[in-house]
């Protein structure tokens, strides 16, 4: 399980963030003591840090600079300072992403997932049961059968696959699609899912995507 460290001074926000991350099956840590942050980071050894710019005693940008001297740990700046200057500065100090408050929780989770995906670096080819999936080419393959997926179908399938055996809401799928510049509506999502089901049926997985009424979908 991936470990995520939250560095943020507002307590209630920290607790909510922690719950959000834990529901998304990450292990979340909240920093309580803002002295010796760097030592605490080495102790916890997180896989990713959510860092606020305004933290007591020091400043997120300075902290990031100091951290970058020794480590290349992925850092997402999460801040209420909504200016281009701060974003450019943070990115130049080595932040991997910059999100401004108030943010959409689903988008935060997407950003975190995409950073982990980038790190693992083998994201372009994946498997599902005996299928090989090439995300970049949009192809699923079963021994000698090759099926081409559209961009939308691919986005939906990869989201379901990344959250396999978990219920995925329509809103999450929609957010992921919109996050990829595919601004489709509700009907189109339904159509895309049924097309994806039909294509999976061709390779022998008729009931791979189940509908959980009123909640969403699940890939078994």
């Amino acid at each position: 399980m991936k470990k995520i460290l939250i560095i943020e001074d507002d307590e209630s926000l920290c607790l909510e963030l922690k719950e959000l991350l834990e529901n998304a099956s990450y292990k979340a840590f909240v920093l309580k003591d803002f002295s010796n942050i760097l030592e605490q980071i080495t102790e916890i050894t997180p896989d990713l840090i959510l860092l606020d710019i305004n933290i007591p005693g020091t400043n997120g940008e300075v902290l990031l600079q100091n951290l970058r001297k020794t480590s290349s740990l992925p850092v997402i700046m999460v801040t209420s300072k909504n200016t281009e200057v701060d974003e450019v500065l943070s990115m130049s100090y080595g932040a991997d992403d910059y999100i401004t408050k108030p943010y959409n929780p689903t988008i935060l989770l997407l950003r975190i997932a995409s950073i982990f995906k980038r790190m693992e670096n083998n994201s372009s080819i994946c498997t599902y049961r005996d299928l090989t999936i090439n995300f970049q080419k949009g192809i699923i393959k079963k021994s000698n059968i090759e099926i081409i997926l559209t961009k939308n179908e691919m986005i939906i399938f990869s989201y379901l696959l990344n959250n396999r055996n978990k219920i995925v809401t329509r809103d999450e799928l929609m957010t992921d699609l919109w996050n990829n510049n595919e601004y489709i509506n509700d009907n189109a999502l339904t159509v895309n899912i049924s097309r994806l089901r039909a294509k999976l049926k061709e390779v022998g997985f008729e009931n791979a995507i189940e509908t959980r009424k009123g909640i969403g979908y699940i890939l078994l």
Binding site: D10, S12, L13, E16, L17, L20, S80, P102, Y103, P105
Partner: peptide, 10 residues
């Protein structure tokens, strides 16, 4: 923006 964020996540 901090309480708004909290409410959003809540």
């Amino acid at each position: 923006k901090i309480p708004i964020s909290s409410l959003n996540i809540m």
